[in-house]
Simulated scan of single mutants.
Amino acid sequence: TADTVRAAAARLAPCDSADPHPNRSWYGLVGTHLYYVVDLVEEATGARDVKVKTARLSLAELGFPVFALAWNTLLTQGHPGHTG
């Protein structure tokens, strides 16, 4: 639920903090902070090995804005591990 996601976000350090992860592409906006979608869904559900596509679609269905960090061919072709 959206409340579960907000509670999970409260337990995580936001990606826009002083220690962002350089190799992550998909983020969900919860409140005023960005969180990596997989970390957020795993924290909210207790599941492990959540796929990026599943995480971003789940958060979007709950009404959370989801953003991708992309450049070059990622803009035109996407990342097969995230969209396929």
Score class of each variant (00 low, 15 high):
residue 37 V to K: 02
residue 65 P to H: 08
residue 20 P to F: 01
residue 10 A to R: 05
residue 77 Q to H: 15
residue 50 V to Y: 09
residue 1 T to R: 12
residue 50 V to D: 10
residue 60 A to S: 04
residue 29 L to H: 11
residue 13 A to K: 07
residue 16 D to A: 02
residue 19 D to V: 02
residue 17 S to K: 00
residue 42 E to K: 06
residue 75 L to Q: 13
residue 40 L to V: 08
residue 30 V to M: 02
residue 82 H to E: 14
residue 37 V to D: 03
residue 62 L to I: 03
residue 11 R to L: 14
residue 57 L to P: 05
residue 54 T to G: 05
residue 77 Q to A: 15
residue 9 A to F: 06
residue 83 T to G: 07
residue 83 T to H: 14
residue 44 A to P: 06
residue 12 L to V: 02
residue 80 P to I: 08
residue 56 R to I: 05
residue 19 D to N: 05
residue 78 G to H: 13
residue 79 H to I: 08
residue 71 W to A: 15
residue 16 D to N: 08
residue 71 W to E: 15
residue 3 D to W: 01
residue 53 K to S: 11
residue 1 T to I: 06
residue 47 A to K: 15
residue 69 L to G: 05
residue 43 E to L: 00
residue 32 T to I: 05
residue 16 D to H: 02
residue 11 R to S: 15
residue 9 A to W: 05
residue 60 A to Y: 00
residue 67 F to R: 03
residue 59 L to A: 09
residue 13 A to S: 09
residue 5 V to R: 00
residue 75 L to W: 05
residue 50 V to M: 14
residue 81 G to D: 12
residue 4 T to I: 10
residue 8 A to K: 01
residue 8 A to V: 01
residue 20 P to R: 02
residue 6 R to W: 03
residue 33 H to I: 02
residue 52 V to H: 10
residue 67 F to L: 04
residue 74 L to I: 04
residue 45 T to P: 11
residue 9 A to N: 09
residue 28 G to F: 07
residue 22 P to T: 10
residue 55 A to C: 07
residue 57 L to N: 13
residue 69 L to K: 11
residue 77 Q to G: 13
residue 25 S to C: 07
residue 70 A to Y: 09
residue 23 N to S: 10
residue 62 L to S: 04
residue 60 A to R: 03
residue 84 G to P: 06
residue 39 D to W: 12
residue 58 S to F: 13
residue 43 E to M: 03
residue 64 F to K: 05
residue 52 V to W: 07
residue 55 A to N: 07
residue 19 D to L: 02
residue 68 A to P: 02
residue 60 A to W: 00
residue 59 L to F: 09
residue 35 Y to P: 01
residue 74 L to C: 07
residue 52 V to D: 15
residue 5 V to S: 00
residue 51 K to P: 04
residue 37 V to C: 04
residue 50 V to K: 11
residue 16 D to Q: 02
residue 46 G to P: 00
residue 68 A to Q: 09
residue 84 G to Q: 11
residue 76 T to Q: 11
residue 70 A to F: 06
residue 28 G to C: 12
residue 59 L to K: 09
residue 44 A to E: 06
residue 11 R to N: 12
residue 67 F to H: 04
residue 50 V to P: 10
residue 36 Y to I: 10
residue 12 L to H: 03
residue 61 E to M: 11
residue 42 E to F: 04
residue 12 L to N: 03
residue 1 T to K: 11
residue 35 Y to I: 00
residue 78 G to N: 14
residue 14 P to G: 03
residue 35 Y to E: 01
residue 76 T to I: 10
